[in-house]
Design a binder for these strands. Structure first.
Lengths: 228, 228
DNA sequence: TCGTTAATTCACTAGTGAGTGAATGAATAA
DNA sequence: TTATTCATTCACTCACTAGTGAATTAACGA
């Protein structure tokens, strides 16, 4: 958990250098936090890994907690807006008759694409999210703050697609969806071992291929249950 | 995160007292670890909360990590055996023709009942599991060690129920199931806020009512996808 | 070229971390 | 009753923590 990794450009304008250093701190912190959690990482760990003095982190970030929140917020904004736009586009396309699978694809596949194509940074952020989402301490609060709007947008579409469905069924359905998504992003390597190598934790494409279909069927079955 | 909680009986046989103290340490550590994670809890936190000197914990447990592992192992054995038995019973009952929903009910409902009726300790353990499951560091390893047998037992039944289904689909389906279960056990309070109080994080009964049905439909849809 | 400003490091504080080995005191078994 | 065993605490160590304020260095603008 130490030793400098990246080379930092020396000869650049101040502002540029500043931004670059901040980014490196954020990237490195993101990586380390995703591996060991908030308390499992020290500012010194981050600093050593970036190759700067540890007090520099206090210079750029108010304190450790603020660093953590900044790390989380940085990409939360991006994924949130992206999915919001995907849901908007989907609604424009289908008007008053969305389907469960369609809404879920807009929500899930958009995100999975990001983690597939976004490089290592996004993958680290995914693992971090997964930990945050299952941490009662302040994880839940952070999820609320960043993702409530886009999630409620999805839920609005699901309600439209399932007008007869009890609201609670939809919320619980969404809960199942997030759980599955978060475990995917956690990338723990468990499924690799369990399946004897047949499935791979980092195979987001395999998840994308199945997840929206799987979950849509789940919604439909639960929502029709009472009358069946 | 301090101040003694429970009263400890003073006048008891040594062995009894010993067992009692160990249990209190385990219970308290379980609670604290479930709230703040491994690194977020100090041995002193645990000791203060139990009302003993912090070095006593080093007396009973090799080191902090061993304490954590003991906390996890204590109930992992119970839930694992319980579910194993439920799956055995189910198979005895249906012989060569299990259903997806039936197998999932044996696996999920058995567990959810435990968290519903098992008291605070089990609920804390559930939250701890959820964190462990999404922690790459050694979480995945601990899940493997304790739960592989029972999970593979479930997967065996699912294969029997879906003989035409690709193996990868079954593993990914199981992955979705655990994700959803773990987020339930995490009890973060997120769904409460999201649903405006309509759903409650600690309402395991509501989950039990929906989860096996939801997931069974998911399996069926994914497995029939290729021919549909 | 020089004063100013910003980035970075240095020296330090006050406190906390896990863990050890010796001391204490109480229950127990002879 | 007494020696022993065991649970518990005490006094410490050594390493590390987040954070501060002053010192240093390098870039920038006039």
């Amino acid at each position: 958990m130490s030793t400098a990794v990246k080379q930092r450009r020396r000869s650049s304008a101040k502002a540029e250098q500043r931004a670059e250093t901040i980014d490196q701190i954020l990237d490195t912190a993101e990586y380390l936090f995703s591996k060991h959690g908030f308390y499992g990482v020290t500012l010194k760990d981050v600093a050593n890994s970036v190759g700067v003095h540890h007090t520099l982190i206090n210079y750029y970030f108010e304190d450790k907690k603020k660093l953590f929140e900044d790390v989380f917020a940085r990409r939360a904004v991006v994924t949130s807006e992206r999915r919001m736009k995907a849901l908007d586009d989907y609604e424009k396309q289908v008007g008053e008759s969305p389907t469960v699978a369609g809404a879920l694809r807009a929500f899930l596949d958009t995100d999975l694409d990001l983690y597939t194509g976004g490089g290592e940074g996004w993958r680290n952020y995914g693992a971090l999210s997964a930990q945050v989402a299952s941490t009662p301490e302040w994880g839940a609060r952070m999820m609320d703050e960043h993702f409530d709007p886009v999630v409620l947008r999805l839920i609005g579409l699901l309600k439209k697609a399932l007008p007869e469905c009890a609201e609670a069924d939809i919320f619980w359905g969404y809960h199942f969806v997030t759980g599955a998504l978060m475990l995917t992003l956690a990338k723990t390597g468990r499924i690799d071992k369990l399946s004897g190598g047949l499935c791979r934790s980092d195979d987001y494409a395999a998840v994308k291929e199945r997840m929206a279909t799987f979950m849509a069927a789940g919604f439909l079955s639960v929502c029709s249950r009472r009358k069946g």
